[in-house]
């Protein structure tokens, strides 16, 4: 379990550039949750996720992973980074290895995995990200398509088998096909019991993947709760400037005629509700 207690982060304190990136943030992320973090650009989302594995240290407050302060001197930070894997924005820009295998094996190697264990970790991570053939491991990561690159980059973090997988805008700059696949594999990860935290600007993605939403505005936490409650808080949604997904809009309209309609995440769920109603 990951917990933040009254965390403050200030950039460039005591200069004219000083800015409060995060103000008094407290939150808990439990096992098996899938959490979406939303907010405007510059609202502190990226700073927040970098706190999760000690890339940034809070100026005030503490970050606890399984009840241990990750920034205390006794803690081996590598172990923290093995448990909390962060996939940055455009992760394929970090590629450097000659083959996909080496690229994916880089993290686990740093964590001390060797030989068969390493090989297994790499191939199972690639499989989880939808590469069923082992041939891909011999290719150069630079020769892949955009979507494949992204999935290899995510596999390179999954190969470390983190308890919590943190993704910073995983779908940014992807084509339709790539997005579809990625959503499918991320949902699979959730099903397999991995905790997922992801930053997004796309409300459809949020609706489809997340159970819980954390909304930030100017470094402050302004919402923390279920996705369905998030989209019904009209005042908040206007304040942080996001668009209600059309699925939610349609569902809300339908609710007037069918008060028993459940919360729907995809158009498919709406249509299956209607089907059930009319063709029992």
């Amino acid at each position: 379990m990951l917990e933040l207690k009254n965390v403050f982060v200030t950039y460039d304190p005591n200069t004219i550039f000083t800015s409060d990136a995060l103000v008094d943030i407290s939150l808990k992320i439990k096992k098996n949750e899938s959490v979406g973090i939303v907010g405007r650009i510059g609202s502190g989302k990226s700073t927040l996720i970098q706190l999760f594995n000690g890339l940034i240290k809070p100026d005030k407050g503490i970050v606890l992973l399984d009840n241990i302060d990750i920034n205390s001197k006794q803690v081996d930070i590598r172990k923290v980074r093995k448990k909390v894997g962060i996939v940055f924005q455009y992760p394929e820009e970090q590629f450097f290895a000659e083959t996909v295998f080496d690229e994916v094996a880089f993290g686990p190697k740093n964590m001390g995995m060797r030989e068969i264990v390493l090989k297994n970790a790499v191939f199972s991570a690639l499989k989880e990200m939808g590469f069923s053939s082992e041939k891909i491991a011999k290719h150069s990561p630079f020769s892949l398509s955009g979507g494949e690159k992204r999935r290899v980059a995510i596999a390179s973090i999954i190969a470390m088998n983190p308890d919590i997988l943190v993704l910073d805008e995983p779908m940014a700059g992807m084509d339709f096909d790539g997005k579809e696949k990625l959503i499918k594999y991320i949902k699979n990860e959730i099903k397999n019991g991995r905790t997922i935290v992801f930053v997004t600007h796309n409300m459809e993605e949020l609706l489809e993947i997340a159970d819980r939403v954390i909304a930030l505005d100017e470094g402050r936490k302004v919402f923390d709760g279920r996705v369905r409650d998030f989209f019904s808080d009209k005042e908040l949604i206007e304040k942080i400037g996001i668009d209600i997904p059309s699925v939610v809009k349609i569902r809300n309209k339908l609710e007037k005629c069918y008060p028993d309609i459940p919360f729907c995440r995809t158009p498919l769920e709406i249509s299956s509700y209607l089907k059930k109603r009319y063709r029992p």
Binding site: Q50, N53, L55, I77, R78, R81, K82, G85, I86, F88, P91, E93, Q94, F106, G107, K109, N110, M111, S156, I157, M160
Partner: peptide, 13 residues
């Protein structure tokens, strides 16, 4: 800095 952080997340010190 960004790449450094990303690689740090993959266990580089």
């Amino acid at each position: 800095t960004r790449i450094m952080k990303a690689q740090t997340s993959r266990g580089v010190l």
